[in-house]
Amino acid sequence: MHKQRSNEPFVWLLFSAGGVVAALFIPIQLFLFGVAFPLGWLNGPSYDTVRGLVHGPIGRLYLLVLCTLPLFHWAHRFRYTLYDGLQIKHLNELVNTFCYGGAIVGTAIAAYLIWQIP
């Protein structure tokens, strides 16, 4: 009997990689940009400093990884949150399209924006 291949291992790999990126890189940046700089606890970087950090190939690659993999992490987790948490199993197709579709659209937007950095 022919067995249909599942794409679960592939999306799980993206979920897992995104989980690592989110765990390592997001807390410090969220603390600085979201809390410490706006409240004036610390002085934020100037436009030139930020641009200097991200306009080279390494900076752009970093931003691409930072913005794309965590989106697939979100897609996978949020899908199961709706599946297990709210038990809306009858809307599976819609939920999958929203989650993975959202991550793919987000990836495209991120790639476009990062390309545009002066």
């Binding site: 995104g18 989110a22 997001i26 940046q29 969220l30 940009f33 979201g34 436009y47 930020v50 641009r51 991200v54 931003l63 930072l66 913005c67 965590p70 989106l71 992490h73 979100w74 949020f78 987000g106 937007i109 991120a110 924006l113 990062i114 545009q116 950095i117 002066p118």
Partner: peptide
């Protein structure tokens, strides 16, 4: 996590 990504994309947009 997704909210942080949105904020970062908005910030990149402002940088452009």
């Amino acid at each position: 996590v997704a909210w942080f990504v949105i904020e970062t994309l908005l910030q990149i947009n402002a940088l452009i």
